[in-house]
Computed example of a mutant assay.
Amino acid sequence: MDLTEIGVIIGGLLLIAFVLWYFFGERTAVSAQTAESGVQEIRVTVKGGYSPDVIVVRQGKPVRLDFYRDETASCSEQVIFGDFGIAKHLPAFETTPIEFTPETPGEFTFTCGMNMMRGKLVVTGV
């Protein structure tokens, strides 16, 4: 093997490691802030994914997730919370609120309409 082949192998291994970290690495959870009205609120930016993509809320308290779609990609046109029976259209460059009250603790996935972008809602006990 010459130096070029070794460089290609090392570059390929580094790229594989980056892809594994990007898609399967630990995500930082962000807790929703409780407003004076008692509603737990957080803004989620939609641009190639959800940011933040792990949201922590408390059980039994109203939640308002403000999804701001900062792109026109067709994949991000909709957000679906299957466990809560919620599916909302997200217009490009607009904020769309989603309001509900989680009654059961646990981890719940939310996705785009094509099931390619994913996030997690973590509902903690009272």
Rank of each mutant, 00 (worst) to 15 (best):
L3R: 14
G7C: 06
V8I: 14
I9P: 09
G11F: 08
G11H: 09
G11W: 07
L13M: 15
L15Q: 04
I16E: 06
I16D: 01
A17H: 04
F18Q: 12
F18G: 09
V19M: 14
L20P: 01
L20D: 03
F23W: 13
F23H: 13
F24P: 01
R27E: 13
T28S: 13
A29V: 11
A29K: 07
S31Q: 13
Q33M: 12
T34S: 11
V39Y: 02
E41N: 15
R43M: 12
V46Q: 08
V46N: 08
G48T: 02
G48Y: 02
P52I: 12
P52C: 10
D53V: 03
V54P: 01
I55K: 05
R58Y: 11
K61N: 10
V63Y: 02
V63R: 01
L65V: 01
R69K: 08
D70I: 05
E71C: 11
T72A: 14
T72D: 13
E77I: 04
F81A: 06
I86D: 00
I86P: 00
A87T: 13
L90E: 04
P91W: 07
A92C: 14
A92S: 15
I98M: 00
E99I: 00
T101P: 06
T101V: 10
E103L: 15
P105E: 12
E107S: 14
F108T: 04
T109Y: 12
T111L: 05
G113E: 05
N115T: 03
N115S: 11
M116R: 13
M117P: 02
K120A: 06
L121R: 01
G125P: 05
V126D: 13
V126S: 14
